[in-house]
Amino acid sequence: MADEDKKRAAHRALVDRILNGEGRAPAEQRARAFGNDALSPPLDTLIGKVATRPAQITEADFAAAKASGFSEDQLFELVICAAVGQSARLYEAGLAALAEATANGEAG
């Protein structure tokens, strides 16, 4: 149990840092990238691809985001937020399915 908590705690520490710690991109923007939600073009394309179809990301996606005024350091942060955000949703979905599957004592 303690080890399981350590994995979750390490993950929470990462999420907390990228969302609430100091950054070059405003915290509100990092939160939107994390949630893949309510971002303006062209950043929404890059962030959306990180979350849902990462293999389709191209140089042009970064070039468009840079041309709209984002610095490389900001994009570094926002792409990380998007990747960690999508993964965090998978974690929640997996743990929720596990909790439901075992709620009635049918398994486990």
């Binding site: 399981e4 994995k7 979750r8 993950h11 890059l46 691809k49 990180v50 979350a51 990462p54 293999a55 990301i57 140089e59 792409v79 990380i80 998007a82 990747a83 960690v84 999508q86 993964s87 965090a88 998978l90 974690y91 997996g94 743990l95 596990l98 075992t102 486990g108």
Partner: peptide, 26 residues
């Protein structure tokens, strides 16, 4: 076991993050 499912989910989460960053940053 439930613990094994949780451990596997942690691996999945770690590599969903890294593989996305690998693809994004090239």
């Amino acid at each position: 076991s439930r613990e094994q499912v949780k451990d596997a989910l942690a691996v999945c989460v770690a590599f969903n993050t890294t593989s996305r960053l690998g693809d994004a940053f090239g």
